[in-house]
Design a binder for these strands. Structure first.
Lengths: 155, 155
DNA sequence: CCTAGCTAGATGTATAAGACATATATGTGA
DNA sequence: TCACATATATGTCTTATACATCTAGCTAGG
């Protein structure tokens, strides 16, 4: 079968939009919520977690609040994801953990960053700065394209 | 079974790292390549594509190069992903397309942004700016945590 | 003529981060 | 007893992207 030939819609003319089911678009998903990485928050939680742990040790449930606070509400990790992340970081030697002694209520597992973890945080900072640069460039390109000329210049 | 009780490693003491297979960490995957959204490039291609199309229409294979150029090499889309994205954008009415007339070589499908597409680009710009702000806050938190105090302040 | 290689479009599959739902256990207060 | 908050944990889905591969049209070399 012809490659580039079996498209049901859009044959040789512009197609009708054929809307209907509302797919994710930019920051919103079909129902208005922001899901997964679609909102562009990819790889935010790990550095935020390391940053918080670099200041003081803590246990999972509380780290969520600490991260939210430290980032001014910009990073609000999912609890489930945070526990999985902590496990992974521990398996790889970036944090250590132990059950907290005594205290009332459910047991708490307290996490503490290692030297490797601090090194990883430094690595993350450099990476995040690169990302910000890429974002700046992209925003600049998008803004100039949006405000600027249409169709091959026309000032 | 007890929740919080069946962890094979890390029982009441800090665990041994137990390295071995090298998992993705920060910007790198096990083999050093940058895969998926792990590198933090989530939702970069769609706005870049819209920005390029806002300047002039074009066909898929060439849009890859246009995007790379417009973003100073910061966004280099995967061709497969780009074609899928173009299809989705067309289905939702943000771009239209038609086969280019004549010319030698394989047929080209030329894409053109719609008014809805331009509106979406504006939406994207606002969103990217929010993301940059979040990134700034996160970098600030990470930097101060990395350089600053360990364990509950100690100036 | 046949093959290799480039352009162009398209699909298959894997990976990774995160969102949402839910399960389990412990403690407190009505 | 029941509802509720804390605390850890797992299941499953969505999404964006990366990498591999396929088909097809054309061109240049042998």
């Amino acid at each position: 079968m012809g490659a580039a030939e079996d498209r049901s819609a859009a044959d040789t003319q512009g197609t009708g939009p054929a809307q209907g089911h509302r797919r994710r678009r930019c920051c919103e998903s079909g129902d208005g919520t922001r899901r997964g990485v679609g909102a562009g928050r990819g790889a935010f939680v790990e550095p935020a977690l390391l940053a918080v742990l670099a200041r003081s040790e803590g246990y999972g449930y509380d780290l969520v609040r600490a991260i939210e606070e430290a980032t001014g509400g910009e990073v609000v990790p999912d609890t489930g994801g945070l526990y999985r992340l902590l496990r992974r970081l521990e398996e790889d030697g970036f944090v250590t953990s132990q059950w907290q002694e005594g205290g009332s209520g459910p047991q708490r597992r307290s996490y503490c960053i290692t030297d490797d973890g601090r090194a990883l945080l430094e690595h993350w900072i450099g990476h995040l700065e690169e990302r910000r640069h890429a974002l700046d460039v992209l925003i600049g390109a998008a803004r100039s394209a949006s405000q600027g000329t249409r169709e091959t210049d026309a000032t």
